[in-house]
């Protein structure tokens, strides 16, 4: 039983480490803010959820200590990680951060222009 629990914990922590390293490489290599926010939000959220699940199973199965705080932390990170990245990239688009030069289409641009025109009319 202990070996099975250790295999589960090590597998979850290895998955989390893989996703964290992928997020760090993405933040270095990708060309503009939006692709970087894409890499950072998804990949690091999944990585930290995997690692915290591994920590939770370690304390539950090996130490016999059921800790709901970690589960609450996983739920909170799952809700707030993508929301934070969305608000960050939307506000920086409104503030005027240019996307990468090779971007094919920009669907947000006419919406933002329409919004600014309506605000000037008021």
């Amino acid at each position: 039983m202990t070996i099975l629990a250790n295999v589960l914990v090590v597998f979850l922590i290895l998955c989390g480490l893989l996703f964290l390293v992928v997020a760090a490489i993405g933040l270095i290599r990708l060309p503009d803010l939006y692709t970087r926010a894409h890499a950072a939000s998804k990949s690091s959220t999944l990585g930290v959820m995997c690692i915290l699940l591994g920590v939770f199973f370690h304390f539950w199965l090996n130490e016999n200590h059921f800790n709901p705080t970690i589960l609450l932390g996983i739920l909170f990170l799952f809700i707030t990680g993508p929301v934070g990245a969305h608000i960050m990239s939307r506000s920086s688009y409104i503030a005027g951060v240019k996307p990468w030069a090779g971007t094919g289409r920009d669907d947000l641009k006419p919406e933002i222009e329409r919004m600014k025109k309506e605000q000037n009319l008021k």
Binding site: G16, L20, A23, L27, A40, S44, V48, M88
Partner: peptide
């Protein structure tokens, strides 16, 4: 964005 990801890594 980098600071947010650093906070997540700190949690790990």
């Amino acid at each position: 964005v980098a600071l947010d990801t650093i906070g997540v890594s700190l949690i790990c």
